[in-house]
Design a protein around this nucleic acid. Structure first.
Ligand SMILES: [Zn+2]
Ligand SMILES: [Zn+2]
Ligand SMILES: [Zn+2]
Ligand SMILES: [Zn+2]
Lengths: 137, 137
DNA sequence: ATCAATACGTTATAGCATAACATCGCCGCA
DNA sequence: TGCGGCGATGTTATGCTATAACGTATTGAT
């Protein structure tokens, strides 16, 4: 399970609550999912969640999945990855696998250099079914 | 400009209107952008747009950009591409460049084979600034 | 004490997407 | 000719996602 993450100590209360919710979740959560989970802690408005998420994503402690409009905790316990990250998202169980591939990064870097494009950020998301779900079917 | 696309002849009226709007647009359009463009043609409801978009995307005549919640016409005039497509989206002018890279496709295929993941579809979107916009700055 | 920077709380609003239901037109087939 | 299936259409209502705009509170340095 994802229960034993080492959380940075300098998070604000809201940031800590949101990251905690993501860490305990077995699948990506939307901002509104998180809000519902944290109403018992006194949070009431979407903006409280979005502001915390902004900071967490900025620091690499969480990631936004564009194709899902949802968020996950970073799978890298301490030092969050630099560079390009790919996400494999299972449509069956919701599990998200996070990995980096230097060759892909290099190919995209080459393409950018050749075309004169200045990359700010890249999202790569694979949708499908994980091995476990395939076995179960 | 994108004015001279060969449009399939078997599109319905709504599908044709929507694809036309995308073909003439210099940048990705949201479903609501398209709706506003087509009110003069009698379209009134978001669903009319979304239904047409579903068909167009299904046939590869248009693409959905997940990181933008918007749509573009496929840049491949006739035979839309098979396989993995990457999109480079300029934050300055909105231009979208569509390209395929067999090496990246192979790397992702390898990863999937190794982990037993069955890929249904992949989205790859690069955000940044195109050469032209960089020159202008 | 003053000031700037950052986080927080609240209300309202904007933007994106689908559910549910009725209707229409086309085509194949008795 | 009439029936039945199917896909596209039209309409209303609703739900989900995200941000604007405002004010207050906390922190921490000078
Ligand atoms: Zn990560
Ligand atoms: Zn699974
Ligand atoms: Zn295309
Ligand atoms: Zn540009």
């Amino acid at each position: 399970m994802a229960h034993d993450h080492a959380m940075p100590t300098d998070l604000t209360r809201n940031q800590g609550l949101v990251l905690g919710a993501l860490n305990h979740a077995p699948a990506p959560l939307s901002a509104y999912d998180i809000l519902d989970l944290l109403r018992s802690e006194g949070l009431r408005a979407p903006l409280q969640i979005y502001r915390a998420l902004d900071k967490l994503v900025e620091r690499g402690l969480a990631h936004r999945l564009e194709s899902l409009n949802a968020f996950v905790a970073c799978a890298d316990e301490h030092c969050h990855r630099k560079g390009l990250i790919a996400f494999a998202i299972c449509e069956g169980c919701g599990k998200v696998d996070e990995f980096a591939d230097p060759v892909i990064e290099e190919r995209l870097g080459n393409w950018a250099r050749e075309t004169g494009f200045k990359t700010e950020r890249t999202t790569m998301e694979i949708r499908g079914r994980c091995a476990e779900c395939l076995k179960a079917a």
